[in-house]
Design a protein around this nucleic acid. Sequence first.
DNA 1: AGCTGTGGCAGGGAGG
DNA 2: CCTCCCTGCCAC
Length: 781
Amino acid sequence: MNTLLYGHDPEECIVDVHQLDECTMRLYTRDAAGVHHRDERFYPFFFLSQRSHLEGFQPRHWIKELEGRAHYRYVCAFESWPALWDAVRFILERHNRTSLTKVDHYASLETISLTPDPVTQYLLQSGKTFFKQMQFSDLHRLQLDIETYSPIPGQFGRASRPGDRIILVALSDNRGWLHLLDGKELTEQQMLATLVELIREKDPDVIEGHNIYEFDLPYILKRCELHQIPFAIGRDGSTPQSPFARGVQERRSIPSVITEVGGRHIIDTLTLVRNYDQSKRNMESHGLKYAAQYFGIVPQNRTYIPSEKISWYWEHDPEPLRRYAMDDVFETRGISEHLSGTYFYLTQMLPMSYSTVLRSGSATKIEHLLLRGYLRQRHSVPRPGEGYQTMGGYTDIFAVGMLEPILHVDIESLYPSIMISKAIRPRSDVLGLFTSLLKELTTLRIQAKRRMMAADDPQEHSRLDATQSSLKILINSFYGYLGYSRGMFNDYASADEVTRSGQEILRQMILSIQSKRGTVIEVDTDGIFFVPSEIVRTEEDERHLVDSLCRELPEGITVALEGRYRKMLSYKKKNYALLDYEGNIRIKGSALTSRSIERFGRNYIRTCVSCLLNGNIAGLHSAYIETRELILNHKLTIRDFAKVESLTDTASEYLQAVEAGKRSRSAAYEIALASDKPLRRGDRVAYYVTGDDPNPRSFDNCKPAAEWDPNFPDENIPYYLRRVDEYSEKFKPFFSARDHHRIFSVDDLFPFSPQEISILDPKLSPNTLSDKEDMNIKTNQ
DNA sequence: AGCTGTGGCAGGGAGG
DNA sequence: CCTCCCTGCCAC
């Protein structure tokens, strides 16, 4: 089983048609009654996107249409290996190809691409790029950034406009090399040719850039095309490719993302930042400048130039622009240094390329591990099961208000621990790889963590930290995979069993804390916030408490003290704020902190929460008054009151849903549709509300944020004042109705005085946990 | 095209 | 007013 984890070398991957005989399958058939029958014979097989590829092919074969498959719709199974080879030759001749090479590993069971793919082939042939036995610091990484010019004032350079061009190419690498190709000295053709030369000469393993997939590379490629210069930067002399540049996408003209080049890896630091923020969720933007500030890697005397002024600077004062470009690549390197190590080490464990590891989700990674095991053992794989998961984590709230002091305990790796200790796994995993993989990875992680603690060398320490955190990501994905509707090995009943056990353990721990005179405040899935009994005074006492909680839980389940806090503001389930002993405040939950709340609202709520946690009643009232004043006097700018929403649907999906009455019109979509830019999935739209109706239908009283003019501010003042009152409503549970009204209202004849106003005692749920459960049972009946 | 899960809160629109 | 439904965002 060990060998499963040391992947990504040629013999572990089904890379080309010569290894096809590693692939076998069982056929499953469904009869009229819907009952599945398993055909006991094994067949050689491959997968096809179109049945027509085999039209006219004589030898006996089965073609079955797959359900729920995106690219490849048919599986073809042959009774014998010679029949398979006949079919392969037949297809090759029909399509005038000399070789078949598969492209991506997700598809390793279902795909033989008819597109020769030198990129992947080269990646797989070049031992260096497997990263086996390599350390992150051994990688030669090169950072690249281009600046573009447009003769039209205030416009960005566009790759396809002949008058526009690339004016600067900034390069750096992790060995300290910095280089600038300058359009004042070189023509664009010369720059592009030199760029190719430089990359080939430097021979990096990895090329990095911020938004390099969707901006720098496509731009460079387009310019190269115009000048008829091959952008042959691959180690095999190939040009960058999109892994999806195959039939279907080309016809639909979906812009393909460039992610692969022969023998090297292309890494977009924008993807790194997005992935990072997906788990942290506290970044304001994913742009290079903000991210560099966020990670504290801004060079001294950093030059900033707004993008619409680039052309002006180039014409009038190019020197700052050169410094700006160099600062960009320097920051790109810093971000990659910070975030890519984890993916690098993951690539050593998964049968995927570096950039695929970066761009794929966690369930895909688990599936690849399982698939590799099945392929090696020449065993058939199941199809995804139908059904749905019915259960999740247990969440509850037992107290609302201000509480102190606070302990936060959490069960370590709850779901993985349950799956290991109860050997919960997909029933379709007949080889039993799921549990052994999970155990193996957990053991490796514990070892890595132990060695990390012991490591003196800071570099060794950070390497081990990256390793263990990448293992953690994998380990935590096993549970999600069970309930994944498209997972070949999914098993909803097993997923329910995991969550059911989790709920049971958490309830047990709540009772345990209550029996020790602790006041439980809020619980969520695997963690509990509570006020310990008064006899728990020292940190020593706290440790004892945690130890005794641990002893009362089942074997294999451990509890850790996750944090200790001075005060907690408990608002609703999954919504609370914490004040630690250093005076820092952490706010959690979509009701209190959310991107969909306007910035002024977030600031206002944060100020109020801070005042509450610090017992500053006067501060609440002045925050209310000041926020109102800002709105009334047009002191806010568009960045403060614009609402930013992201769009999940395409234009046609939205319009259809509205037409069908399935959803109502929404301001964000209407704004996006009205603009001249095409609406894309995931676009973020910033808009504000206009008019003077405090309760407007926002979709016909809204304007794009970009159209707001500070000289003629037309934001809807009554509406935004109403928002302040709505936000103030959130603090109702903390005061008597009278006090709340006094704090959150404008001064009348008598000026506001915080005297005699006090924060209410917390409202404890009158019932114990067991009462609550009784109630639930009653209401269910 | 890609694609781990459930639970929970808030806001907006539509219709009573 | 209220309720229902939908979406977006967030916690874990």
